[in-house]
């Protein structure tokens, strides 16, 4: 077994930082629901923000998506997919909620 070089230690530190941030965000999500420290109207927005933050953290630290030039194609693919998905998912929620209101 070879000794780990500085490059390997740097990458390990990078992944560990990603894990640490993910753990902090996960604990914050569970705490916001289980402890009741937030006003109830704020819990859902807080959950959405914490989930989005953790998704960005994991994309950055575990899947290495960032703004360096070589990886831009993957970032563009991801962003385009998210755009299509946002149109379809938001459209579904909007249409169905509107239909639900009119059926009342």
């Amino acid at each position: 077994m070879k000794h780990s070089g500085p490059e390997e230690r740097r990458e390990r530190g990078f992944y560990t930082l990603g894990l640490g941030l993910s753990v902090v965000l996960t604990v914050a999500s569970f705490a916001s629901v289980m402890t009741g420290i937030l006003p109830s109207a704020w819990v859902i927005p807080a959950l959405v923000v914490l989930a989005l933050a953790q998704i960005v953290v994991q994309l950055r630290y575990f899947l290495h998506i960032d703004f360096t030039h070589q990886k831009r194609e993957d970032l563009q693919l991801l962003l385009f997919t998210v755009l299509l998905l946002a149109i379809m998912a938001f459209g579904t929620l909007w249409v169905m909620a509107d239909l639900g209101d009119r059926m009342m």
Partner: peptide, 24 residues
């Protein structure tokens, strides 16, 4: 590896929006 990390990202959405937001 890409697939495995991707599944963890999907799980973030599930535990936040299905379970935690459900009981919030």
């Amino acid at each position: 590896g890409l697939y495995w990390h991707f599944l963890d990202i999907v799980w973030i959405g599930i535990f936040s929006l299905v379970f935690l937001a459900g009981v919030a």
